[in-house]
Design a binder for these strands. Structure first.
Lengths: 102, 102
DNA sequence: TAAACTGGTTTGTAATACAAACTAGTTTGC
DNA sequence: GCAAACTAGTTTGTATTACAAACCAGTTTA
């Protein structure tokens, strides 16, 4: 397994951005997560989180379901199959390029 | 070694950007590199490379020496001590967060 | 019934990545 | 000898972005 460093230029930008990387990493550890949980966990402002979730949704990586908990809105997010795959590949690339052995 | 995922938000953005991550990774494999070598190796346009090198220099991560090879300009770049350290830490973080074990 | 709160989205703005256009000097062709 | 083409970069213009402040629709509290 050789490192063609140029592969670094092809990193998936939808995932690579730190805030989204954090969101996706969190989502990869749970079955699903609601908006406020993600906000607390990631430490993002609502506006910022909302924007990043929209990007991830547009990329097809996160599925967003709007429902209600009692009378209040509830936004539930989960990684799609495609999102899981993309994240797995991103991790593989990163570990490959960043590990010292090689 | 526990993963506090929030650490992902603190990734060094001077390094994290893909083009710069590529540049820094290349520089970490050589003692020094001139502008055109970096351009070929990284596959960046001159303008883009120039801008990224300036950023890395401003961050104190790359030292840029302008000299001449014969009569033509020669720009030689190398990682500073601080740059090497920052890159090592970046890699550590990334491997820590992206490895599946844990 | 108005004020404050909840769970978000939209909007404005500053920073960024990028390539095209430019610059300063050099070599080549005629 | 001088214009045209080339070298090695830098600066400038633009489109995209990340981000938080302002906003919004509905709900609870006073």
């Amino acid at each position: 397994m050789t490192k063609d460093l140029r592969g670094l230029a092809d990193l998936d930008r939808a995932i690579h951005e730190p805030a989204r990387l954090l969101i996706v990493t969190i989502l990869s550890t749970v079955e699903s997560a609601d908006f406020l949980f993600l906000q607390r966990e990631a430490g993002l402002t609502k506006g910022n989180l909302s924007a990043h979730l929209t990007k991830l949704e547009e990329a097809g990586y996160v599925e967003i379901k709007k429902t209600f908990k009692g009378k209040l809105p509830l936004t539930v997010c989960k990684l799609t199959k495609s999102g899981s795959k993309a994240f797995a590949q991103y991790r593989q690339q990163m570990v490959k390029f960043m590990s010292t052995t090689g």
